[in-house]
């Protein structure tokens, strides 16, 4: 694998090999120092909460499972919402390509309206305003629709960029081969555009797991944040409860980022 490792040891090293080894050493030292500093910062945090800042270990032990039980719900909302958001984003991006004015208008109207209002307001709208019109959505679905609509509007830009990344030559080649516009879209343009859109969609998913905490404000969805606030308020242990929730969110994002990096590495070394 490594060009330089395969050389016989003992053979005189060339200038290039020496430079390469030095660069590798420098890189390793840098990474080691970064990891070391991370460790120190983590230890510092642990120390802070075990001494100078008083936390109630009893409370943490008692409520750990209850709060952890929200992780599943948080992931469930996020997955359902990202699916809805992806569909909406794709439709909105395709709508932007339409030469039929009502479709184009619908797409831009949706994106403008959603991006022009706060996410928090949109969530409240689905939970609190709709019931006034006698529309009562189950808590989870109200949250999913609000998050999905919101992220769909932002993510439509990702898909638009994905579609734009496919050159005009691809359409012309498909047309010259006799493909219809529909065949060109599904067989040639979309596969390339989606591939382009996968890494940024992963980023949006990670952001969404955190924004899903906003849904807790409605009180209808018992995800991570809602559970932390509930037990924290009831026993006036908000500090411990929020720290626990923060740790769960943090671990989730670290894991998701790791998966995201793997997918990205795979895509970039693949057949493109």
């Amino acid at each position: 694998m490594n060009l330089f490792a395969s050389k016989e040891s003992g053979a005189p090293k060339t200038q290039a090999e020496l430079l390469f080894a030095a660069a590798q050493r420098k890189e390793r030292t840098f990474r080691f120092n970064v990891a070391l500093t991370w460790g120190i910062l983590l230890l510092l945090l642990v120390y802070l909460f075990s001494g100078p800042i008083k936390v109630d270990a009893e409370f943490i032990r008692e409520n750990m499972l209850f709060i952890a039980g929200g992780v599943g719900e948080t992931i469930r909302i996020s997955i359902l919402s990202i699916i809805l958001a992806t569909l909406l984003a794709l439709l909105a991006a395709l709508g932007r390509l339409s030469t039929f004015p009502p479709i184009y208008a619908l797409s831009t109207f949706y994106v403008s309206l959603i991006r022009g209002t706060p996410l928090y307001l949109q969530i409240m709208f689905f939970f609190l305003a709709l019931p006034q019109l006698n529309i009562r959505l189950p808590g989870l679905w109200a949250g999913v629709i609000a998050l999905g609509l919101n992220y769909g509007a932002y993510m439509s830009e990702i898909f638009r960029a994905g579609l734009a990344s496919v050159g005009k030559g691809q359409r012309e080649a498909a047309a010259a081969l006799g493909m219809t516009p529909g065949q060109t879209m599904t067989r040639v343009i979309l596969p390339q555009a989606l591939r382009f859109a996968i890494p940024p969609t992963g980023n949006e998913f990670i952001a969404m797991t955190k924004d899903s905490a906003l849904v807790s404000a409605t009180g209808f969805v018992h995800e991570l944040m809602w559970r932390a606030v509930k037990v924290g308020r009831a026993q006036f242990h908000n500090l411990e409860a929020l720290i626990m929730a923060a740790i769960f969110y943090w671990i989730m994002t670290i894991i998701l980022s790791y998966i995201q990096n793997m997918i990205e590495a795979r895509l970039s070394k693949g057949d493109r």
Partner: peptide
């Protein structure tokens, strides 16, 4: 008519063989 372009315009997400059979299968 068959057309050959200056910039080749092969489909990058398909293998060479899939590039060649795509239109005969899908279109014809």
């Amino acid at each position: 008519t068959g057309m050959v372009f200056q910039e080749f315009n092969l489909f990058p997400h398909m293998t060479v063989l899939d590039n060649v059979i795509e239109a005969p299968v899908i279109v014809k």
